[in-house]
Write a protein that binds this DNA or RNA. Sequence first.
DNA 1: GCACGAATAGACAGAGTGTCCAGAAGAAAT
DNA 2: ATTTCTTCTGGACACTCTGTCTATTCGTGC
Lengths: 186, 186
Amino acid sequence: MMAETATDRIVDATFALVAERGLGAVTMTEVADRAGVARQTLYNHFSDVEQIIVTGIEQYAQSGLAHLVELLEATGTAEAKMELLARYTVAAGNHGHGVEDVRSALSPEARAHLDRHQSEFRTLVVSIITNGMDDGSFDADLDPDRHAVLVQGLLLSASDLAASGGDPAEVAGLVSESILRVLGAS
Amino acid sequence: MMAETATDRIVDATFALVAERGLGAVTMTEVADRAGVARQTLYNHFSDVEQIIVTGIEQYAQSGLAHLVELLEATGTAEAKMELLARYTVAAGNHGHGVEDVRSALSPEARAHLDRHQSEFRTLVVSIITNGMDDGSFDADLDPDRHAVLVQGLLLSASDLAASGGDPAEVAGLVSESILRVLGAS
DNA sequence: GCACGAATAGACAGAGTGTCCAGAAGAAAT
DNA sequence: ATTTCTTCTGGACACTCTGTCTATTCGTGC
């Protein structure tokens, strides 16, 4: 097991505190205590709480996205890819730091910064839809950009459903079925 | 035009500041200035920024929900009700204070408090689904609670789509069509 | 054993908080 | 008009957290 870096411990401590008390109530002083590190050390790594959050989300999104792309490439049909997306989202909703929950609490600048990743993910969805339209898996008259937004809305629901209990596999099945219906598959 | 109460001005000033700088950067001192009121007066009405937000969201949600219920009662079929819901959500996304954006920044307690309204809305959706299942408008084998979550996910997308431009009527049409597909209508 | 980068503890002014108080301003009633 | 009651106001207070600066210690590599 690879040694946890100080940065990792700081990020973890921060997300734990945010989950407990909400972002507004988290102080650098507290994070330092929780991470078992001097307050000054915190400032050696990050300039404020918000930057810690942004870093954490970025790490998470990047590692997750890379892995997801890998899995998608090994998957054949557009339908199967959407199913994978649903399963993946359900699984991520159980792991991650409740990422989506925090995002909207950030300053407009930080949010704009993070929107890059959001758009990478959207691009992914758009390309799957486009492929599915080309090979006849989905309706031919979809607007890929707009339907990608709808798919993301359903995936967000997947996180909600997974979080509020229920068999993950079952939830993933429900969500992917719904996605396919929206896209007009079979 | 009815005179604006001090409370209203405070709430408005707060949401304006939150939209500009993000919730974390909003101070009571600043809100007082913007609302044209003494700082002490602020504390006569609210105990902190979070409470102002909660109050604002509650007002908004209550007035909105009452109006919505009224409209729904004047609407016939379950399909038409879902379409109304979509149109309504698109319209609300353009008016309100960007309510959904702020919610998740709050402390767990405040969020739990607001979840009451969320659940009232969900109850509404669940009952429409149930009715639609009974009269054969929707598939008979739906899980109303779970599908209500999915419908809400799609409605959230409606806000996104409406916010990022595009003809409201068209967006509403797209979203309601998707909802009906998920619910298995015709 | 030494040097160098990283971590630490302590101190600092500044900003915002939440509370208290005493006075000013308004409204309502007699 | 004067009184009464409530709300608004401005100043003052101790407190917490911030972000920065210092000097000191730690640990690893050479």
